[in-house]
Amino acid sequence: MSRLANKFAELKVSGRKALIPFITAGDPFPEFTVPLLHEMVAAGADVIELGVPFSDPMADGPVIQRASERALAHRVGLRKVLKMAIEFRKTDQTTPLVLMGYLNPIEMMGYEDFANAAQRADIDGVLTVDLPPEESEACVAFLRERGIDQIFLLAPNSDAERITKMDTVGSGYLYYVSLKGVTGAGHLNTDDVKERLELIRANTDLPVGVGFGVKDAETAKTVANLADGVVVGSALISKIEASLDDPEQAKRDIVALLKSMREAMDS
């Protein structure tokens, strides 16, 4: 059983929901990332989505775009992110780590080389924003052989047919993007999410994480009541951006936010 499947099974037994923070690797500088990952786990994170900086993050809003730009200014690309993952694993062998990013860095490395490198780094899942299931066959095959889950996105306008498709090619969990738009935008509509999740669950047994629009303890709790996992990204990165001159403060703010979410989700 993969670390992700294990984690979701474990959470199910204990009646809890997964807290899944997303940060961009190397933001605001490379040495900041691995210690932050450990602190996020200590604050209650169950799964971590680690963003691979990309020069052209087409599906991301301004907050995550700027995080990518800050990381790229330190030349943090896929290779360095894999090194960070190795570093993280030295002291944490249990928390599932998912790489989230765009396809081109993986294309340039080559699917097989990437799958090997991800296996060496003990990566648990890969979420490639611009790789829909139709084009994913070759890449997924290499990952699957190595026990790495390929996680797919679902959108508010994904119909039953597409959900079934994701269920077939995806594993680990599905990530439901609860808003039409880019990351960091707008407000969560609970009724909409509820309705969509019913359709999703009718077509898959995979755990479903919900993201886009989760910004505080209250929204985290709301989502936790509906989904299997709560993904929070832009709200964390906003903390980094608010304290660029004092990264330790940013770290404290991120930990505090995650703790408040954890508490609200478990209460």
Partner: peptide
């Protein structure tokens, strides 16, 4: 350049070894 994926399609691109454009 060399083949890669950007803006919705696979084609020749100008990118570095990390795949950044």
């Amino acid at each position: 350049g060399r083949p890669g994926v950007l803006h919705g399609n696979r084609t020749y691109l100008m990118a570095d070894d990390d795949g950044e454009i």
